[in-house]
Design a protein around this nucleic acid. Structure first.
Lengths: 158, 158
DNA sequence: AGTTGAAATGAATATTTATTCAAAATGAGG
DNA sequence: CCTCATTTTGAATAAATATTCATTTCAACT
């Protein structure tokens, strides 16, 4: 029985890594990890995360994380972002991303458009982005979320 | 009371043009257009179309057509496709797209990756794509479907 | 610590959606 | 125009999910 934020993160990770076809099923997996909640709560969590159920050949229906918005998520935008990304540091719960000159606003836009719940918003200058994480979100969570948005960052970040 | 294929097309068009939040609601709209079916059938249709329900600020939940796969749907790929597209003609239920030299296979891949139910598959040469429509799909349906995949085609096609 | 307002949660329930099972409809050969 | 096989459908029901309403938890102030 831990807290909501942690639970949301675990739900995201479970859904992205395996095929889940009902809330009951997910509930049991959460129990296995010592999250004891009810279906009602799970229903609200999935709504919050904008998770959706979709037909799947084989499993009938499975849950799926929301797709990143198509417009700004092209491979081009991503590799542009990956190229311009220099580093990220944290201080006082805030993240500071350094980019190559001129890259900050496009990278920030990419992050904003993905709208991960881990990040409330960003503010970009020319080569610096301030990342404002949600409450109770750790540095690790922020980084995981960024890697989801810009997969190519994986190399630069571990 | 008309046929399944027609019904599927209407469902797609309704869902893409307005916010629907339950099958009952959609059922009524279909009735208004003289499609008299039951919720059971609708449930199967939505599964077939891979339509999914997702949280929506305001309406609670709404139905949503599946997103086009992200990888090949970048603006770049689309405008590349739009640029290379020359024309489409139909003969014996088959569509033949003419493209600029070399464009056929990338355009065909874009269509295949969107996987619209209106089109069973494509075969591409260098500057020609054979488009094999599903049964009972009209030329108009194929074209609508192509425009959904490559919005910029709208100009070239009407 | 005590108070207050907001957020999170569970139990029960309402609502919605999927499936089962039998019946029609459709289509391909004879 | 008859089979026979397949597909589509509806009615009823099962299963899954969302919401209501009351309660608890939590954080921010006294």
């Amino acid at each position: 029985m831990r807290n909501r934020t942690e639970r949301l993160l675990v739900i995201k990770s479970i859904i992205s890594s395996q095929k889940i076809s009902s809330q009951e099923e997910l509930l049991k997996l959460l129990e296995a990890k010592n999250f004891n909640y009810t279906q009602a709560t799970l229903s609200r969590d999935l709504k919050f995360l904008k998770v959706n159920k979709i037909a799947d050949p084989g499993k009938g229906y499975i849950y799926k994380l929301p797709d990143l918005p198509v417009t700004e998520t092209s491979e081009i935008a991503e590799s542009h972002a990956a190229k311009g990304f220099v580093s990220i540091q944290f201080s006082n719960k805030l993240g500071v991303i350094k980019t190559l000159p001129g890259y900050a606003s496009s990278i920030a836009m990419l992050i904003d458009s993905a709208n991960p719940f881990e990040i409330i918003g960003t503010i970009a200058g020319d080569d610096t982005i301030l990342v404002i994480p949600n409450e109770n979100i750790t540095e690790k969570d922020v980084i995981n979320s960024l890697v989801l948005i810009i997969p190519e960052l994986k190399n630069k970040l571990d």
